[in-house]
Amino acid sequence: MDHSSFTPLMSLAGGALIGLSATVLLLANGRIAGISGIYASAITGGSGPWQWRWLFLAGLLMGGALLFGLMPAAFAIVTDRPLWAVAVAGLLVGVGTRYGSGCTSGHGVCGMSRLSKRSFVATMVFIITGAATVAVARLLGGAA
C-alpha cells in the first residue's frame, strides 16, 4: 500500500451511501443496519419478523453482483495472507462480532452515530487489535 491508493472522495461517497442505507433501515423498519447481527439472526433464526433480514441480505448480494459486473477491479481480493489465515480470520470475526454484539457497521457506523458509549469503546478496541494484528503480521512476514 502507498499513498497513491488513498481515495478520500470515493471513500467519503461510499460512506455516505452506507449512512443512507442505515437511515432507510432505521427510519422505515426501526432496525439497526448491523451486518453481523442481521446475518447471524437470519441463519440462526432470530425472534419476530424475519423476512426483512433475508431481503436485506438479498439486496446486499444483488448490489454486490451488479457492482461486480460494472467495476470488477473494486473486488481486488489480493492480499499476502494465506488461505488458512483467512479461515482463522473468518472464525474470529464470526465469534468476536457475536460476543461483542456488532461489527464495523453496527458499532462503527450505527452505534457511533447514536453516540453510544459501548459502540465507541467497541470501535476503538477492534481498530486497536486490528492494527496490532497487522503490525505483528508485518513483523512475521518480513517486508509484507
Binding site: 474470529l92 468476536g96 486490528g130 492494527a131 494484528t133
Partner: peptide, 9 residues
C-alpha cells in the same frame, strides 16, 4: 477478537 480477525483477513 473481531479486530484480530479483521486485521488477519
Amino acid at each position: 477478537l473481531f479486530g484480530v480477525g479483521w486485521g488477519l483477513g
